[in-house]
Design a protein around this nucleic acid. Sequence first.
DNA 1: ATGAAAGCGCTAACAT
DNA 2: ATGTTAGCGCTTTCAT
Lengths: 343, 343
Amino acid sequence: MKRALPKRRAVKMGDVAKVAGVSLMTVSRAFRQDASVGEKTRARILQIADELGYVLDTTASNLRTQRSGFVAVIVPSINNANFAETVNALSTVLNPPGLQVLLGYDLYHTAEEERLIEQLLRRRPEAVVVTGGRHTERCRRLLKGAGIPVVEMWDLPRRPIGHVVGFSNAACLGDLVDHLVGRGAQRIAFIGGDISDDTRGADRRRGFQAAMRRHGLDPDRLVPIGAPPATMENGATAMARLLDEAPDTEAVVGVSDLAAFGALAECQRRGLKVPKDIAIAGFGAYDIASVSVPPLTTIDPHCAEIGRRVGTLIIDLLSRTTKREQSVRIKVKPTLKIGGSTD
Amino acid sequence: MKRALPKRRAVKMGDVAKVAGVSLMTVSRAFRQDASVGEKTRARILQIADELGYVLDTTASNLRTQRSGFVAVIVPSINNANFAETVNALSTVLNPPGLQVLLGYDLYHTAEEERLIEQLLRRRPEAVVVTGGRHTERCRRLLKGAGIPVVEMWDLPRRPIGHVVGFSNAACLGDLVDHLVGRGAQRIAFIGGDISDDTRGADRRRGFQAAMRRHGLDPDRLVPIGAPPATMENGATAMARLLDEAPDTEAVVGVSDLAAFGALAECQRRGLKVPKDIAIAGFGAYDIASVSVPPLTTIDPHCAEIGRRVGTLIIDLLSRTTKREQSVRIKVKPTLKIGGSTD
DNA sequence: ATGAAAGCGCTAACAT
DNA sequence: ATGTTAGCGCTTTCAT
């Protein structure tokens, strides 16, 4: 887009200096809480700056100091309570030391992620956080070449780019299946995770199948729902199909609590009792899981803890003078939360 | 935080130029699709840049051109499907012309909003979008003095700072009350909106009371839930109290669908039939409203449309060479969506 | 179609 | 405690 040059902001640091009767450097120091400026001088300078409507221009200081104050964070979707919680916790850790999250979302497409990464790297973030372990080759190259800390979260990639804070999505499904089988279920279906671009969803489905095989049960009761994100509506539609086509199903696992709740709603609509007629479990410990009637059995991935761990890791990495030799790999342990929907 | 200077990124524009055997300016032009660079030269330059791992440094070009490419957007919470949808639509409009959303959230606190605004203005955004019409005086001053377009959305402030894209939260509640009264309800309660920092929630509550008075009904069946955001759990707790203390209640309106769904869940838990025993309505047209059993009557504020309107407005404002004289005030019309929960 | 020089608004480094 | 000088990596302007 062609855009007209904005009317130049009148006030800059030199103007404040002139009015305050000091040099530009003193103003600069006053703004950065530099100890070498007297308390009274600083107060007067900041006062004058405020009156003049001066706002520090970090676009210039970023260039000079070679520090943007940004941490680029890419999540699959901005409209997902799990990732929102992680990003929120991450911000909470990064903000006090002066780092700001620059958020991007790729709608579950690795090609879009690559585009986004390149765009964000142009802003010279001091670290990059990506969700998941699947990326285009060019994306990997860009990240490796950026010379800044890279953290992959919400997964445990086999071939990590840099650091990792995550858990095994597949293993969590094992816990769910074990729980359901322990409760006596045998004919268990899985809703979602059929699109390969949804790495975590596909991993969960794989984990489901592996666990079913381990128990000697049919691993192929799979109900596809198409492109991510898995919605409540997807879950309801899938459940309707499942009940029509495989009415002998004893338990259902949703790729997320949203799909699971949709399934629960469909059961209600048909007058089926959960868990008496059919048990339902989900993933993510979304609010809906604890409020629904009955509450949903789910896996709590500890979204906030992931965010906090990523944050402290980044702060640690950035405060070192010497680069760490080895990549950090932090495993976060998700928890099985048993609700009335399977009990 | 003290941070070590990052190892300077080796490759810069001059390096690419040297390898390509052209001047730095030619490289600069190649990256900006300047017509004066030959197609073959450009391709070769970009190829070399990619091989060298060069990524354009917009931190420098932003300073030189006095354009950041940022639009600062402040929402109350990052973990809210309504605002997420608005921001998503906004990004979709802003990205193609080369603008990037720089997102901040203030957790429903005007003091935090002020802090955030100042921080974001230091990055020299080309426009600012804030949610709601209530701000600290200093915040108003900062925004007015920034010399860039300011848009307040999701509300119709009486004393707007600049441009507005929104609707009357109070009026929407009137529509809901009219609907419930038309259906025969008289003893209607409102859940939430008791904290003044939650402007929109408080507006909705006010709108509820005004409508009840208009119908000659008791406007004071109000159930507080405390600090925003209103959650499903809040709604369930409030409903429990309401059913204990005012069992003659015929209908309930939640400050949002989340609270309304919590209320619905509490009814289910107690074996009450909705809407036979009690009718329930919400606000926001969240996914849960259409998937729950029964579906919730709600107000659809058209989140995506708000985002799109804000986006096109900003693009229009930024592409003008002469500043608009008058502020724009766009009203978006929310829609009543009638679901089984009141029918 | 390409290049040389100047400078965007700050801050690091080195004075005093 | 404060000031002076140089320069961060680009793009604008002007020249060829």
